[in-house]
Amino acid sequence: MLHIVNKSPYERNALDSCLRIATNGSAVLLIEDGVYAAVKGGSFEGKVQAALPGLKIYALGPDLSARGMADRVLDGVNVVDYGGFVDLVAEHSNCQSWL
């Protein structure tokens, strides 16, 4: 299953809820303001790193770049473009957007 999160973890609980419910082996794609969870140095870093062994975490490159965050992506987070976003949707049997 693919989970899509578009909210900053510092503003909303979308990522928290997603991480609570996402099961091992699922993928989480961070887009829009959701990409702020994918970077080093913030207080959310630990939470994302703790989730990484069980989940595949991706972040949308164009959204990282737009926000000036492309150079501080956490190790273990895969950066994808819109084509990669499409591939993730195609590879997983269903997807849930945590709006």
């Binding site: 578009n6 887009i31 829009e32 303001d33 164009p62 959204d63 473009d81 819109y82 084509g83 976003f85 499409v86 949707v89």
Partner: peptide, 14 residues
């Protein structure tokens, strides 16, 4: 919201 931009870019890429 960025939602429409994301949807457009996703649709185009698909």
């Amino acid at each position: 919201h960025e939602a429409s931009d994301s949807a457009y870019n996703f649709t185009k890429a698909a």
